[in-house]
Design a binder for these strands. Structure first.
Length: 895
RNA sequence: GGGCGAAUAGCUCAGCUGGUUCAGAGCGCCUGCCUUACACGCAGGAUGUCGGGGGUUCGAAUCCCUCUUCGCCCACCA
C-alpha cells in the first residue's frame, strides 16, 4: 500500500486483478450488500447473441448500462443488472451451418436431432465468450443471474406464453403471404426485413386479350412472377377499361386464360392503370385474389427457383435467371412495350442480406393489436419516457400501424412450437400443450409435433420477467419487476424493446421499465456504421489492451451525447482513445501526488472530531476548491440522473483537471512541502476533494478510481469504492464569494502569464506586477493569495497602486482593475501600443453598441429592469476598462 | 410517398423554457517550456456572417415561415 506508484498509469497490470477482487466479494449482486435496504434499481442487458464477439456497439451499449448501474449502486439502490445471451435462432444456425459446410455437409445430412446436438455442442464449446469480454471492460452485471434464452426456465416461460396467448385467441395459424428468405429457408417477420432503395426496372408488358381484339399493358418490377398470374385487375371506375372487365386475357408464355377483374385497390394513375395479379407472390395481389376467389399459383421453390407449376422451360431457373428469360421472351414476341429505370425499396433478410421473396405459406401469428393497445396507452399516459424523446414518435407510429407477428421459423435451432397434430384418421385434433405430448388427448392416436421453431425474439421479449423466474412467483420476480432503465441501440426498438413492453403489460400488468434510453450508433470518420463486412470495426479488447478499459469507457462516454452517434477512427486508435488514456494518466499522477502527501495525521473537514478543521482555518483557495467540488457533485449527479452521461463526465473531467490539478494542487504545494502553517488543513482539503472526485468518476472509470481510492489513508482492506456512498451536495460548501475572489486570482495570474508569453520573457526570469485600482474587495482577495500569485505568475514583487514606469505589458481584469507588468527595455513600445490599440478598439465598439442599446427608449421601457440594470453595469465596466487602457497609451506615448 | 430530426471553429459536439457562461468545450493547429505528480505534461495563442432567405420582438444561435443539404423511422403505387 505504501509502495511508490509508477509515474505512468498501467491499466493492464491492475484491471483484471481488481475485477477478480470485485467478483470474489460479490459486489455486483444486490443480495450481498445492504440487503433489504434501498429501492431496487434494475436494468435488463440486451442479451448478445450467444456466438457473438464483442464489438464497439456492445462496448458502448454496455458501458452506458454499467455507468448507470454503478451510479445507482453507489446511491444506495439495490442495483441489479441482469446479463444473458440469446440463442439467436437464424444467426446461430447459420454459424453452425457454415462450419458444417467446411466439412462438406449440410444440416440435412445430419438430420434434425444430430444438427441441434451439434449446435448445442458449439454453443457449449465456444461458450458465451462475449460475457467474459464484457468483464474486461468492467461491466458490473450480476453474473450469478446469467440466463440463456434456451435455458430450461426461459423455455418454460416461452411455452407458458404460447399456450396462454393461444387460449386467449391471440395466437393463430394462417395461410398468408409472408416474407421468405430463400437462403435461410425460413419465414421472417416484417421487422426482420430491411428495406433498401435499389435501382431497378419497371417492365411494361403487353397482355393480349383472349379474343385477339387487342391487349392490356401491365407494369411490373418482378416480371418472373407473371408465370403465376391468375388475373389482371383494373379500377372499377376506370373508363378506359370498364368494357373489358369480365373478359379474359391469354397469359403469354403460359398460355393460360385469366380474367380481368375490377378492384378498388388499383391506382388508375400509376403506370397503365392495369395490374397483373399474382396471389401467391405479392401481399396486395393476395388480397385481390381473395376478394375475387382467384387461385394462387406458387411458382417458386423455397430456394426461389421456378417450380413445377410453371412451364417446363422455366423450371429450376433461379428467380433472376427466370426474370431475364421472361423479359427476353416478351421482347421476342413483341410484347415488351418498354423498360423504365425505377428506384424502389426491396426487402432484404436482416441476417444474410438476401432479397426476401413474398411467399404464400402456413405460419403461426400473434394477433398484435390487442397487445399494442395497452402499450400505446402507457406511452400516451406518460408512463414511458424515451431518451431522446423523439424516439417515442417511432414507437407510437409503429404501434399504431402494427401488423400481426409471424412467429414461426422453418429452422431447427430454437424453441419448438408446442403444437401437436393428431395423425389418426378422421381425428384432426390440434393440441397446444405446456407439456410434450405422445398421444392425442382427444382420440389417443399418434401425434406429430409442429416442425417449426419460434422466432428468437419470442423468447427475448419475455426476459424482464422470465429471467426472474416467471411463471413461478419467485422472490426475484416480486423484488425486481418492474425494472427501471432499458438501454439499447435504436435498431432493436421494435424487435425487442416495444415487444417487451407489450408482454410486460399483458403478463405482468406493468411496463417492464419506465426509461428507454436509445443511444447512437458507433461509426467511423466517414460516418459509416462500423461493421464486420466493411472492415471498419475497432476491437474493444485491443483498445483495452493498449489504453485500458477506463480509457475506452471514458472516450465512448465523453464522445456521445443524447441522440447522436459516436464517431471513432478505426485507422487511428490514438486519435480516438488518447483522451481517455491521458485523463486516466492525469488522474493517476494527481493521485500519486496527493497520496504521497497525505502521510501523517489527518484532520477531518466536517463532523464532531476534536481536531476538525475550523472554517476560519481555510484559505481562500481552500474555500474555493471546496465550493467547486460541491458544485461538481450537484452538476454530475444531475447529469447522471438525466442520462446525460457525457455532461457528467465533462463536469468531472473539468473539475479534476482544471480546478483540482491545475490550480488547487499548484496552490497548495508550499503548504505541503515546507513547514508552513496550514499544511494539515491543505491535506484535509486535498483528501476530501480527491475522495469526492474519485467517487464521482467511478461509474465512468471504475478501475483506476478503485485503485486510487483504496490507497487513501484510513481505508480498510475490504472497502470498495463501488459500494461507497455517493457524494451528497453540502449547502455549507456553497461559497459564491470564494468563487468570485479566487476567480480574480486566476484571472490576474493568467493575465500576467499572457504578458510574459507575449513578450517572450524567459520562463525563469521573475518580473514585477502592479495592480491599479482601489476596489477593496479586489485588493482583499488578491492580498489573501499574494504568495500564490507571486509563485504561479513567477513574480519577484507584486504591489497595488500606480506605476510611473512607461514600458511594460498591460491588461485589464474583468471587474475593471488593470495590471501592469514593467518590462523596461525588454519590450517594444510600438508593439505594446498596437496591442493596447486593438484592445481599446474592441472596447470602444462594445461601449458604442451598448450605449445605443441603452439609448433605445423601447429597450429601457420594455425590458425587465434587472436586465436593464445588468446592461448598465456592463457599460460602466467597459468604459472603465477603456479609460484605463487609453491612459496607458498616453503614458507610453502611443501615437 | 408519409412521419421525425439535424445543420454552430479544421473534426466531434455543448449552448434546456429568447437578455450573465453568448459566441463556448475537447481534440487538432501555432509559440514557448524536460518548472522535483504527470511531455499521456505545463503555459500562452489563432480560428466562427451560429446552413441561405424572410418574419416575430426593444432584443434571435435560441421562437415562427421558407429554401437548401444531410440523417433516421415507416410505407403492398404494381
Amino acid at each position: 500500500m505504501t509502495q511508490p506508484l509508477p509515474p505512468q498509469y498501467n491499466p493492464s497490470s491492475i484491471e483484471s486483478e481488481l475485477y477478480q477482487w470485485w467478483t470474489e466479494r460479490r459486489l455486483f449482486s444486490p443480495d450481498s450488500h445492504a440487503p433489504g435496504s434501498g429501492e431496487p434499481y434494475v436494468i435488463m442487458m440486451p442479451p448478445p447473441n450467444v456466438t457473438a464477439v464483442l464489438h464497439m456497439g456492445h462496448g458502448l451499449n454496455n458501458t452506458v448500462q454499467d455507468v448507470l448501474i454503478r451510479f445507482e449502486r453507489m446511491r444506495g439502490r439495490r442495483a441489479l443488472w441482469v446479463p444473458g445471451t440469446d440463442h439467436a435462432g437464424i444467426a446461430t444456425q447459420n454459424v453452425v451451418e457454415r462450419l458444417l459446410a467446411e466439412e462438406g455437409l449440410t444440416r440435412f445430412d445430419l438430420g434434425r436431432d444430430a444438427f441441434v446436438d451439434r449446435v448445442w455442442e458449439h454453443v457449449r464449446e465456444t461458450g458465451p465468450a462475449i460475457l467474459e469480454q464484457l468483464k474486461a471492460i468492467g461491466c458490473s452485471a450480476d453474473w450469478s443471474r446469467t440466463y440463456f434464452t434456451l435455458d430450461e426456465g426461459l423455455s418454460r416461460a416461452v411455452r407458458e406464453v404460447f399456450v396462454r396467448l393461444y387460449e386467449q385467441g391471440l395466437i393463430y395459424r394462417g395461410h398468408y403471404i409472408i416474407n421468405w428468405c430463400p437462403r435461410c429457408l425460413t419465414a421472417l417477420s416484417n421487422e426482420e426485413v430491411e428495406k433498401d432503395e435499389v435501382a431497378g426496372h419497371l417492365w411494361h408488358l403487353r397482355y393480349p386479350l383472349a379474343d385477339g381484339s387487342g391487349h392490356l399493358t401491365v407494369a411490373t418490377t418482378r416480371p418472373e412472377t407473371m408465370l403465376g398470374d391468375t388475373a389482371v385487375a383494373v379500377h372499377p371506375a376506370d373508363e378506359r377499361y370498364r368494357h373489358l372487365i369480365g373478359r379474359d386475357i391469354r397469359l403469354p408464355l403460359v398460355e393460360r386464360l385469366i380474367p380481368i377483374v375490377a378492384d378498388e385497390a388499383v391506382d388508375p394513375s400509376f403506370g397503365s392503370g392495369a395490374v397483373k395479379v399474382t396471389p401467391a407472390h405479392d401481399p396486395a395481389d393476395f388480397e385481390i385474389g381473395r376478394r375475387h376467389s382467384l387461385p394462387g399459383i406458387d411458382i417458386m421453390t423455397p430456394e426461389a427457383r421456378i417450380s413445377l407449376a410453371a412451364p417446363e422451360r422455366f423450371q429450376g431457373l433461379d428467380r433472376y435467371e427466370a426474370r431475364r428469360r421472361v423479359v427476353a421472351e416478351f421482347d421476342t414476341a413483341g410484347l415488351l412495350e418498354r423498360t423504365e429505370e425505377h428506384r424502389h425499396a426491396v426487402g432484404h433478410c436482416y441476417r444474410c442480406g438476401t432479397v426476401v421473396e413474398p411467399r404464400l405459406s402456413d405460419q403461426w401469428f400473434v394477433r398484435m393489436e390487442p397487445l399494442a393497445r395497452p402499450a400505446l396507452a402507457a406511452y400516451r399516459e406518460g408512463t414511458l419516457r424515451f431518451v431522446p424523446e423523439r424516439r417515442g414518435d417511432d414507437y407510437e407510429a409503429w404501434l399504431e400501424g402494427i401488423r400481426d407477428w409471424c412467429i414461426s421459423r422453418q429452422l431447427w435451432w430454437g424453441h419448438r412450437i408446442p403444437v401437436w397434430y393428431c395423425e389418426a384418421a378422421g381425428c384432426g385434433q390440434v393440441s397446444v400443450s405446456r407439456t410434450d405430448l405422445d398421444t392425442c388427448p382427444g382420440c389417443g392416436g399418434p401425434v406429430r409435433q409442429d416442425e417449426d421453431v419460434l422466432d428468437t425474439w419470442f423468447s427475448s421479449w419475455l426476459v424482464p420477467f422470465s429471467s426472474l423466474g416467471w411463471p413461478d412467483r419467485t422472490r426475484d420476480l416480486a423484488t425486481f419487476y418492474p425494472g427501471h432503465t432499458l438501454v439499447s441501440a435504436p435498431e432493436i426498438l421494435f424487435f425487442w424493446v416495444a415487444r417487451m413492453i407489450m408482454s410486460g403489460l399483458h403478463f405482468m400488468g406493468q411496463v417492464p421499465y419506465r426509461d428507454i434510453y436509445l443511444h447512437g450508433t458507433v461509426r467511423d470518420t466517414q460516418h459509416r456504421k462500423m461493421s464486420k463486412s466493411l472492415g471498419n470495426g475497432i476491437d474493444p479488447l485491443e483498445v483495452v489492451e493498449r489504453y485500458g478499459a477506463d480509457a475506452l469507457r471514458y472516450s465512448l462516454i465523453s464522445g456521445m451525447s443524447v441522440g447522436t452517434d459516436v464517431i471513432l477512427d478505426p485507422n487511428d486508435l490514438e486519435a480516438s482513445f488518447a483522451s481517455g488514456r491521458n485523463f486516466a494518466n492525469k488522474l493517476w499522477n494527481a493521485g500519486r501526488f496527493i497520496l504521497s502527501n497525505l502521510n501523517g495525521p489527518t484532520r477531518p473537514l466536517a463532523g464532531s472530531h476534536p481536531h476538525v478543521v475550523r472554517r476560519e482555518e481555510l484559505t481562500l483557495a481552500d474555500r474555493w476548491i471546496i465550493a467547486r467540488c460541491d458544485a461538481t457533485v450537484t452538476e454530475a449527479t444531475e447529469a447522471y440522473q438525466r442520462l446525460r452521461l457525457n455532461e457528467a463526465a465533462g463536469a468531472i473531467y473539468h473539475f479534476i483537471w482544471s480546478d483540482l490539478a491545475d490550480w488547487y494542487i499548484e496552490q497548495v504545494k508550499p503548504r505541503l512541502y515546507g513547514d508552513l502553517p496550514g499544511g494539515d488543513v491543505a491535506r484535509a482539503v486535498l483528501a476530501r476533494t480527491f475522495d469526492v472526485s474519485l467517487r464521482l468518476l467511478h461509474p465512468t472509470m471504475p478501475f483506476i478510481t478503485e485503485a486510487l481510492w483504496r490507497r487513501l489513508p484510513g481505508r480498510s482492506d475490504t472497502a470498495s469504492i463501488s459500494v461507497a456512498p455517493w457524494p451528497a451536495p453540502d449547502t455549507r460548501a456553497h461559497d459564491d464569494q470564494a468563487l468570485e475572489e479566487f476567480g480574480l486570482v486566476q484571472e490576474l495570474v493568467s493575465a500576467i502569464r499572457a504578458v510574459r508569453a507575449e513578450y517572450g520573457v524567459q520562463p525563469g526570469q521573475p518580473v514585477r506586477a502592479v495592480v491599479s485600482g482601489d476596489n477593496r474587495v479586489t485588493v482583499g482577495a488578491l492580498e489573501q493569495e499574494r504568495s500564490t500569485i507571486l509563485r504561479l505568475a513567477k513574480l519577484s514583487a507584486f504591489s497595488f497602486g500606480e506605476s510611473r514606469e512607461r514600458a511594460g505589458g498591460h491588461a485589464v481584469l474583468s471587474e475593471g482593475t488593470a495590471v501592469f507588468v514593467p518590462l523596461g527595455d525588454a519590450i517594444d513600445v510600438g508593439r505594446e501600443c498596437g496591442r493596447l490599440g486593438t484592445e481599446v478598439d474592441r472596447l470602444v465598439r462594445l461601449v458604442e453598441s451598448q450605449e445605443k442599446k441603452l439609448g433605445n427608449e423601447q429597450f429601457v421601457s420594455r425590458a425587465p429592469s434587472d436586465v436593464v440594470e445588468r446592461e448598465r453595469q456592463k457599460l460602466v465596466t467597459w468604459k472603465e476598462q477603456c479609460e484605463v487602457l487609453v491612459k496607458k497609451r498616453e503614458l507610453l506615448g502611443c501615437v
